[in-house]
Amino acid sequence: ETWRYAFEEALDEVQGKFAQKFKAEVEANSDNEVQLFPFGTLGESVDIMEQAQSGILQFVDQSPGFTGALIPEAQVFFVPYLLPQDQDQLFSFFRNSKAVKELFPPLYAEQGLELLTMFPEGEVMMTTTEPVRAPADLNEVKFRVMTNPLIVESYQAFGATPTPLPWGQVYGALQTGMIQGQENPAFFIESTKMYEVTDYITRPGHNNFTTAVMANKDFYDALSDEDKQVVQNAIAVAFDYILEYQDGLTEESLAKIREAKPAMTITTLTEEERAPFRETAAAVEQKYLEIGGAQAQAILDQMKADLQAASESAQAEAAAAN
């Protein structure tokens, strides 16, 4: 059988790498063929999601930020400073999270989707035309954000003027000075050339871009046990692969940016500098609870418990290593 799998990025970006691995695993271990449809070839994010719900597509990768319009709870991934900056803790969270593995799947199922996995795509960084060390530096800065209420809220809390803008216009708008900043993971800043039209990359550590892979539920339920196993195994292999792939990806992307544009200033904020940004998180969390749907509180509590567990297990591992 031919399975179709669409995602929101280009073939050699993180979602595309995951999809390619998934395809290779499925095709090596079964007679099924997987066709890949990168960003834009079947429409935008919302379109491919609807097609997966309709069953035209069997698999789709959509980031919870976009899914928020459908499953409001998924916006939890936009609460700043919720996810840890430490890579080991982060990976441990995604491997073991009860919220991801038990609380989210029924919410996706209500929308006709089988949630297969969630994985991180990289630390979100600001690229701006002026240096940013403190919220005061964002004052009056028109900062391009995705059209999502929580990101808008976050950047308002940071002191910027959040400016929703279609992705296709961002490069030109940075070039002319219509906006002065935008945020994305390092690999995306590199691949979309955002560094060409900004001079500063700032790492406030406020978030890690998360994405989710799902299948059409009717399709998945109708699979033979054998094929279900093939899918689950391929997802597991691709998950391990993508975490390994990401280990170092951020530094590699930043190195490429430095090489292409030596004048680029890349700053990791210190814990002290992060503190005033971190203080705004509570307000955004409150907003999430307001608009995050019926399960918002349960999801947030579980996420925090999972993160606590991830932090403890990472510390235990570190202690064992010493």
């Binding site: 319009a69 409001p72 929308q111 059209t147 209420p149 929703p164």
Partner: peptide, 8 residues
């Protein structure tokens, strides 16, 4: 039926 909201 899906109940999708316009984000803004």
């Amino acid at each position: 039926g899906r109940g999708r909201l316009l984000p803004a």
